[in-house]
Amino acid sequence: MTCLPAQTDKKLGLVIDLDTCVGCQACVTACKEWNTGGHMAPLTDIDPYGGDADGVWFNRVHSYEHMTEMGGRTVNFPRSCLHCETPACVTVCPTGASYKRASDGIVLVDEDKCIGCKLCSWACPYGAREFDTDVGVMKKCTLCVDRIYNDNLAEEDRVPACVAACPTSARHFGDLGDPASAISQLVAERGGVDLMPEMGYKPTNKYLPPRAHTTRAASVPAPALEAVRAEGGFLGWVDRMLSN
């Protein structure tokens, strides 16, 4: 049923640290590798070795330049399903293929019911859903539902593939509905934010903004042969003489 559960027992989700993400794409390939054989398999690639490659991915890492008055920096930005509390992608589904689980809040697609109308991908402001043209159905992040409850895996491996793969621990997994959980504490401590809060879909996943710039170094590097700040003493005298 595409009506949403009034509340979910847990709110499983990811917290992504934009301060430490280095944009290595390890989470992207780990996601693809696991999920092309997982719950939503296959993650079809069309013409993968040709000049017009296309394919289904659940996780994509963008790179942005964020310029503020404090200076600029590169921010690597992983984008995937945020498992929203009120996801429009679920309610617009005409067949009941899209659903949000009452137990843990994970948003899933039942591939056997999907008619491939693509309306859910229009309703998602984040571009989390990708259509598989080969199978004719919509696909999306499952939060590795086939890993996190998998008794065949060692307990430390029962996390989404992207979290397990991250070399800088920029990705965290846990219950965001429990204020005492480590992941909720991290969000509180670092001021985690929602993406597009004005859309009102209440995303479960949170993003930790990059830490503030320090004042230890000069905020604006000086152009060649020019002092950063007015120098006194001998260098100041040299500067004044040469400037005349």
Partner: peptide
């Protein structure tokens, strides 16, 4: 608001893929 990066300007530097995706 799409990236959660407050203030200033956010400019796309590099896409996650080289070809057009879905």
């Amino acid at each position: 608001t799409a990236t959660g990066l407050a203030g200033g300007t956010v400019r796309s530097m590099e896409w996650p893929h080289t070809e057009e995706n879905y």
